Amino acid sequence: MKVVIIGAGMAGLTVGIALKKFGHDVSIYEQTQQILPVGAAISLWSNGVKCMNYLGLTDKIQRIGGQMDNLAYVDGHTGDTLTAFSLDPLVKAVGQKPYPVSRAELQNLLMDEFGREHIHLGKRMTALSQQGDHVHVEFADGTQLQTPLLIGADGTHSMTRAYVLGEKVNRRYAGYVNWNGLVDASSDVAPLNQWTTFVGDGKRVSVMPVADHRFYFFFDVPLPIGLENDRTNYQANLKDYFQGWCPQVQHLIDHIDATTTNRVEIHDIEPFLTFYKGAVVILGDAAHSTTPDIGQGGCQAMEDAIYLARALQVNTLGLEDALERYQNKRNERTKTMVLRARKRSEVTHMHDPIVTQQWYESLKKEEGPHIMQGIINNIVGNVLD
């Protein structure tokens, strides 16, 4: 079957690779002239890695993945460790190591695997409609096409979603700003094989190891929406927001490269359960845009991709039947993840100071099982369990 995918991000590329492996004729149309990763890195938890394994990418993911053996929370002001523990029990429970990876390297890996010659750049979709048993698509450059199946992987601002739902859905500001990027790994900040998060005042500073002796870093600060975004002030801003924090955090701020650092106002979208209309279906951020607070945004997009490809392969009662089965399998799980991430965001970023302070206190007593069980609950129930 001919399949057209709108969007060449992780969701679009993953579903494209899966569909091609099942013999479909797949093309991707991307509105930008150059594909750039959204964000510096991604915490690819075990369910996401399993999706990559399913596509035959095990060795390639391991090569770009960071060695993350341990997890720790640290008091941001004093630098004292609140809790630290090995992730081995988690790995044994779910059957796969997690791999923090550079988004650019993951994007390039997926584009190479899909085939760059089948990715059409500078194609901004302006209209789509169902015409008989085909979907008609128009692009800003005047080109048009018809396809038996259109997959919308066009992200949080998805035009395909508006078509499927019959209305535009507004994004919800989560109340905090995130700065993220890559930096040379340094034991002056944290152990090189550990996911370390400094917490205090409803703020977070976190580093995760990725390949080639680098840390993926992010800073979270609760702030009003719409503040000035001047890249030349990033380090000064962070110095101000984290004034008085421990030497490890100050060292990290001193060594980031503002020219490659991203600043993002974090949003999500109220969950909904309709993922298709006729022969148009959505996945990834188009279907369930979430905050990054439990590290499941990219992983859920990958799960969508694998299940959609499998639904189209193993169900033979027609296209709409397969799309409905995909929708009904994925919508409740992804809704749960959006709401779980939202709840975690509210605790972490001090929507209620009492609740957040109680969380800080609980970390001092944490030995690992409670936090790991929370992560395991996000991983299990995936399409490859």
Rank of each mutant, 00 (worst) to 15 (best):
H157T: 13
T83F: 12
D112M: 01
V383R: 00
Y176C: 10
A93K: 00
I256V: 10
F198E: 10
P89D: 08
G65H: 00
T290M: 08
A322Y: 13
I151P: 00
G23S: 14
T316R: 08
N70Q: 14
K60I: 06
L109Y: 01
G16N: 12
I376V: 02
G284L: 03
S187Y: 10
H120Y: 15
G200K: 03
G152I: 07
I151A: 00
G298E: 11
L323F: 00
G166V: 13
E105C: 08
A211F: 03
P89S: 06
T58I: 08
N378C: 11
D112V: 01
T32G: 02
D254M: 01
V15I: 13
K239Q: 04
E228Q: 10
L192K: 15
A162L: 13
N180I: 11
L227T: 09
W245C: 06
R161I: 06
I379V: 05
L238S: 01
M350I: 15
G95N: 09
G9L: 03
C299F: 05
L363I: 04
R340C: 07
Q67E: 14
E367A: 04
A311N: 14
Y276R: 00
R333H: 05
M302D: 01
G318Q: 05
L317Y: 15
H134E: 12
R340D: 12
A322F: 10
Q31N: 03
E30C: 06
H370T: 12
V210A: 01
M125G: 07
V26T: 13
E138N: 01
A8D: 09
Q235R: 08
P191V: 13
A309N: 14
M337T: 11
F114A: 11
L106I: 12
D220N: 12
A41D: 09
R214T: 06
L55F: 13
G381T: 14
H136R: 11
L87D: 08
D212W: 06
Q34G: 07
K168M: 09
G166W: 07
K21M: 15
L109G: 00
V4N: 13
F215T: 11
T290A: 02
P222Y: 01
V183R: 00
G16Y: 06
I28Q: 02
V3E: 01
H267L: 15
G295S: 04
G297P: 00
L227E: 10
D25K: 08
Y173R: 06
Q131Y: 10
Q248V: 04
I64R: 02
I253L: 12
L44S: 07
A311Q: 13
Q146H: 02
D75Y: 15
V199S: 05
V199I: 14
P100I: 03
Q357P: 08
N193Y: 09
K364T: 08
T32E: 07
E138G: 02
T58Y: 03
L227G: 07
S206M: 04
A309V: 13
G79Y: 15
A11Y: 02
V264C: 05
S158E: 13
Q96W: 11
N237G: 01
P369N: 12
I64S: 02
M1N: 03
T58H: 07
E228N: 11
N233R: 11
Q107W: 01
I256Y: 03
V264A: 04
T334N: 09
L87Y: 03
E30P: 02
D293L: 03
A301I: 08
